[in-house]
Amino acid sequence: MNARAEAAPARVYVWEFPVRLTHWTIVLSVVVLAVTGIYIGNPFLTVAGEARDHFVTGTIRVIHFYAAIAFALAVLARVIWMFMGNRYARWPQFVPMDEGRRRGIVQTLQFYLFLRRDPPPTAGHNPLAGATYLAVFGLYFVQILTGLAMYSASAPVGSPFGVFSAFVPILGGLQTARYVHHIAMWLILGFVAHHVWSAIEVALVERNGIIESMVTGYKTGVPDEEAKSRDE
């Protein structure tokens, strides 16, 4: 593919509204879930006085559950959008099926290892990022499943959430589910740390407005793959 910029930096509409909405919902809910989740794992506040006057852990758990609902719905919506959105949102961006994208992974890795000056030009996700997000979505599903399984343990009799108790033996029991839930959270937070820095780095190096694009939807000076595939 010849990726020479066709003209002066053009604005390309890359991230549609559902992509941006689910992105920021996930960001917000992950922050809330991590903070409340770390607290639930190790409740570091201790209140004095009578138990009946306080509901600290109880409240934090409720916040965790609501954030979890927002998170799960956003993840689900984003997955559905992988089959409905524009080419930058679709599933082939994440699953490196063709030779070109597989080569792109190697090229991007070379870029990160300073073996290559520029990452392969891409309008949507770069191939390495796309593959990484596949793993990250895997972690999201681990969190959702372990979370629902643990929630099912205290779901009221007759609650529809009771069905998720079916996952408990598959996950190796509730105590293992707790453990996996913790480790997956830290892997996600590790990803967040990497993601923020990479976004800053790519924004500075490529100057394609990647950070603003997550708000406006537009990147600048990137090949318009969507238009190109329409022309062909």
Binding site: N42, H182, I183, M185, L189, G190, H194, W197, S198
Partner: peptide
């Protein structure tokens, strides 16, 4: 060794590594 301790240090490590990477990248350019 609590998971949270390992996780917190790991996350800080990732942040530090990528922060350094970004700085090196910019400096080289």
């Amino acid at each position: 060794t609590h998971i949270d301790k390992v996780g917190a240090w790991g996350t800080l490590g990732v942040a530090a590594a990528f922060g350094a990477h970004a700085l090196i990248q910019i400096a080289r350019r």
